[in-house]
């Protein structure tokens, strides 16, 4: 079974996958371990889960972690209010004496009870506190959890492919890390970026691509920027350039950078970039 599954993942239509990452995804699937992805914002951590789901033809379930979240929210919810209401007005089709009818599965629960194997994306795990993280991995390790209200254990029918993302510069706790495979997605090199842009803009001319990428990597090298523009910004920026009928290639070659606001989202960064561009033009 391992061999069949093993070389399945090759990257999806809109996602450019480097070989390293593909190997790590495959090994994590084979070892049945969650894969923890870290990296600069905009390096495609979240997109990877979409790509895996797409290329393996599995449904994707996304758990967006919030700071106030408790683990049980991710597992199941006991809808007490509806039950209270039903018990009072008794006009619903549900059986009030059967608590199970008022249990709704949370995202992790949904992944467990799904009839097919799913991809479970746990996005931005660093937002939650350490207890949440450790407890969640206990559940994911054992692939089962208890619903206290009805004293029933839910076991995973199919072990989901688990992708966890984290933006934090701080490390997660040791027990957590011990149970995951880890990969850090570095910012794409120019060649990889060309491929990424090519996937998103198949009809983009070579000269424009070269000029855009050159300008973009030039801007990324600026010192003193707090939030460097990432892939997402580059894609939006090229989209903006393409939409502008007045845009000419010569503008970029002269050192002008139109739509700087698409690339920089913070005003101090914008200032630094503006100054650098002005210097460049002279």
């Amino acid at each position: 079974m391992v061999q069949d599954d093993f070389y399945k993942f090759r990257g999806a239509d809109k996602y450019v996958l480097d070989d390293e990452l593909a190997e790590i995804v495959n090994v994590s699937m084979a070892l049945e371990m969650p894969l923890l992805l870290k990296g600069e914002p905009g390096t495609g951590k979240t997109m990877l889960a979409y790509a895996i789901a797409e290329s393996l033809g599995m449904p994707l379930i996304i758990l967006n972690v919030k700071s106030s979240m408790k683990l049980v929210d991710a597992l199941y919810q006991y809808d007490t209010l509806t039950r209270l209401n039903d018990s009072r007005f008794s006009d619903s089709i549900r059986d009030v004496s059967n608590i199970e009818e008022y249990i709704k599965m949370g995202k992790i629960g949904q992944a467990f009870v799904s009839d097919t194997r799913t991809v479970l994306l746990i996005d931005e795990i660093d937002k939650a506190d350490t207890d949440f993280q450790d407890d969640m991995l206990d559940v994911l390790d054992q692939m089962e959890f208890d619903i206290m209200e009805i004293d029933k254990t839910i076991s995973a029918k199919n072990r989901p492919v688990i992708i966890i993302t984290s933006n934090a510069k701080k490390d997660l706790s040791d027990p957590f890390l011990g149970r995951c495979n880890f990969h850090h997605i570095a910012f794409p090199e120019e060649d990889t970026m060309r491929k990424i842009i090519g996937v998103h803009f198949p009809d983009l001319g070579r000269e424009i691509m070269d000029a855009c990428i050159k300008t973009f990597y030039g801007l990324r090298k600026l010192e003193g920027i707090e939030k460097k523009p990432a892939t997402r910004e580059l894609i939006n920026w090229i989209r903006a350039l393409k939409a502008d009928p007045d845009f000419k290639l010569s503008l970029l070659e002269q050192g002008n950078v139109p739509y700087l606001g698409v690339l920089y989202k913070k005003s101090p960064d914008m200032k630094v970039a503006n100054e650098a561009i002005a210097r460049n033009r002279e």
Binding site: E20, E23, I24, V27, S28, L31, L35, L36, K38, D171, L177, G178, C180, N181, F182, H183, H184
Partner: peptide, 12 residues
């Protein structure tokens, strides 16, 4: 690649 993903848990 695999040994790094399995053994090393921080990009540092």
């Amino acid at each position: 690649v695999v040994a790094r993903a399995v053994l090393v848990k921080s990009e540092r």
